[in-house]
Design a protein around this nucleic acid. Structure first.
Lengths: 189, 189
DNA sequence: AAATAAATACTTACCGGTTGGTATGTTTCG
DNA sequence: CGAAACATACCAACCGGTAAGTATTTATTT
C-alpha cells in the first residue's frame, strides 16, 4: 500500500493517543518499520503532515455539507437536521481523525492555520445561511441572531467529540434526536 | 509579591499563547527574571504546575455553581440561566486561564487527570440535576434525556472559548440571551 | 532483448539545539 | 546560627531536520 497514506494513518493514531507535540517523527516511523529519511521524503516537515490531515478532514466535511445544501425541495429544518447528523456521524465514522482535527489546530503555522480556518468558517457560514433562509421562509423565528445560533449548533455538536462514545450506551441517532428537539422546540414545557 | 503566584500567572499566559508542551520551564522563569532552580523549589514538576492551574480553575467554578444551586426559591429556568451566564462570563473575566483549562487537560498525568475529570463531571451532573428538577416541577419537558441536554448546554457554552471575544462586537449579555432563548424555547417559529 | 540512463524510494549517520530535571552551591533574613 | 529562598552548572535524552549515499524500479536507447 501507499507508504504516504500509511504514514498519515499511523500519525493520526499516535496524535490522537499522545498529542501532536508529544509524538515524535521517530515514533511514527518506528511504528511503521521505516526510517526518518522516508518520512522526509514524503513530507517537508512535521507541520505539513498535520496540515494535510486537517485539510483532508475539513474538505471531506465541506463536500458532504454541499450535498445537504444543494438538495432541492427540502425544508430548512431538514437541512439543519442533516447537518447535525453529519457532525455527529463523523465521530462514529472517523473518530480519531475527528479528534485530531479538533484538538491540534493550534500547532499549525499561521499560513496553514488560516487556510484551515477559512474552510471551517465556510462550514459555519453555511449553517448560518440555512438558518437565515429558514427565517425568511417563516420556518424559524426572526428575533434571534442567526450567527450566534450557528455557533450554538456547532458548539453543541463539536463538543461531543470530548465525551461521546459511539460504542457506549447512547446511540448517535438518539443524540441527534435530542439535540434537534432541543434546538428546534426548546426544553420548556 | 508571592513568587509562586507569579510563576503560575506567567505560565498561564505562556501556556495560553504557545501551548503547554511548547512552553519550557526555561521560558517561564526567563520571563520572570529568575532561574530554573527557583521553579523547582516551588514545584516538583511541570505537570504539577498544570495540575494546580486546573484545580484552581475548576474549584472556582464549582464554588460559584454552588451559590446558584443553593439559592432558594429560584425557578429552574433561572438557575439554568445563571449557569450559562456563569460559563460565558468566565471567558470575559478569566479568559486565559479558561482557555488553558479547556485545551491542556490531556497533558495531565492519569492521576491528576482523574481528579480534574471528577470535578468537571460534578459540574455537569449539577446542570443535569437542575434539568431533572425542572422536569419534575413541570417547568421543563419530560420527553428529553436530561443527561444529553446537559451535554448540549455545556457544549454550547464551552465551545465559545474557541471564538468568543469579549472585546468584539458581540456582548456577553447578548450571547447568553440568545443561547438561553434557543435552549428554552427553540428556534422554530 | 539487453544495456544503459534516470528518476524514485528509501537508509544511514549525523547535527545543533532544547528539554525536564537535579545536585550543589550561595545569599538573604529572622 | 539556621532555615528558607534562591542561583549555577550540569546531565542524559530527545527533538526536528539534513546531507549524502544506496538500492530499486521505470523509461529510454541501442
Amino acid at each position: 500500500m501507499d507508504i504516504k497514506k500509511k504514514i498519515i494513518e499511523q500519525s493520526i493514531q499516535l496524535f490522537e493517543m499522545k498529542g501532536f507535540s508529544e509524538t515524535s517523527i521517530q515514533d511514527v516511523v518506528e511504528a511503521l518499520g521505516v526510517t526518518k529519511g522516508t518520512f522526509y521524503y514524503y513530507f517537508s516537515s512535521k507541520e505539513q503532515l498535520l496540515r494535510e490531515i486537517h485539510l483532508m478532514y475539513i474538505d471531506g466535511l465541506l463536500k458532504l455539507q454541499e450535498q445537504i445544501m444543494e438538495n432541492p425541495g427540502t425544508r430548512y429544518q431538514t437541512k439543519l437536521y442533516e447537518t447535525v447528523k453529519l457532525l455527529i456521524t463523523q465521530i462514529k465514522v472517523t473518530g480519531r481523525p475527528a479528534r485530531v482535527f479538533h484538538r491540534e489546530m493550534r500547532h499549525l503555522k499561521p499560513e496553514s492555520a488560516s487556510m484551515v480556518k477559512q474552510k471551517r468558517k465556510l462550514f459555519r457560514l453555511n449553517i448560518q445561511k440555512i438558518i437565515e433562509s429558514g427565517m425568511e421562509h417563516g420556518e424559524f423565528r426572526q428575533d434571534l441572531r442567526a450567527d450566534l445560533v450557528a455557533f450554538a449548533i456547532l458548539g453543541m455538536c463539536n463538543w461531543s467529540y470530548n465525551w461521546f462514545d459511539p460504542n457506549g450506551p447512547v446511540t448517535d441517532e438518539e443524540l441527534v434526536e435530542t439535540y434537534m428537539e432541543t434546538l428546534l422546540n426548546g426544553i420548556v414545557n
